[in-house]
């Protein structure tokens, strides 16, 4: 079953003796449902990775970094997890995120999606969905609402969208919330 897009799975392992980009590795690309599950079944669950590691799933041709021309005007919907949620929630939420991407759950707004990242960190893990244009408010909000629903988050929970340009300057201001 062909997917709408070809996707690339990336792995980041923190090694401070190397430049950031040298720690980022392309694992594999796939463009069918069956190949997605084959890949998913052969990699470690996110919860088993060491702190400092990331997985990123991006559309083929988009590198998982702010500097990429298809990311630099964009931003991310960010889900921050408490430390104790690594074992109870992280793997489920990351899988739901992957299924939203490959299944094109955001319908016509899916073209705004660049990819998603899971960051494994001692202080609390994070999952984010990256979109290409932070000023496309209608698409950003549609994606945020649908994403929150697919994650099964409570209506009381709030997730924020941050423009990469703000994150790059260390501002953590939410441009939108749902």
């Amino acid at each position: 079953h062909s997917l709408e897009n070809r996707w690339a799975l990336w792995f980041f392992k923190n090694d401070s003796s190397q430049a950031w980009q040298d720690n980022l590795h392309l694992i594999i690309k796939f463009d069918t449902v069956e190949d997605f599950w084959a890949v998913y079944g052969h990699i470690q669950l996110a919860s088993k990775l060491s702190s400092g590691c990331d997985y990123a799933l991006f559309k083929d041709g988009i590198r998982p970094m702010w500097e990429d021309s298809r990311n630099k005007r964009g931003g991310r919907w960010l889900v921050s997890l408490a430390k104790h949620q690594r074992h109870s929630k992280l793997d489920r939420l990351w899988l739901e995120t992957l299924l939203c991407l490959i299944g094109e759950s955001f319908e016509e707004h899916s073209q705004e999606v660049c990819g998603a990242v899971v960051n494994i960190r001692t202080k609390g893990d994070k999952i984010s969905v990256w979109t290409r244009e932070a000023e496309n408010q209608a698409s950003v909000l549609h994606i945020g609402h649908v994403y929150k629903q697919h994650l099964g988050l409570s209506t009381k929970a709030i997730i924020g969208y941050q423009a990469h340009a703000d994150t790059a300057t260390k501002s953590t201001r939410n441009k939108f919330v749902v």
């Binding site: 079953h1 062909s2 997917l3 709408e4 449902v33 069956e34 599950w37 998913y40 739901e96 299924l99 490959i102 299944g103 094109e104 759950s105 319908e107 016509e108 899916s110 697919h150």
Partner: peptide
């Protein structure tokens, strides 16, 4: 053009099919 959309249920069934 048409977009290939798969819902969660379909994707999960593909995981479990032989």
């Amino acid at each position: 053009g048409t977009r290939i959309i798969y819902d969660r249920k379909f994707l999960m069934e593909c995981r479990n099919s032989p």
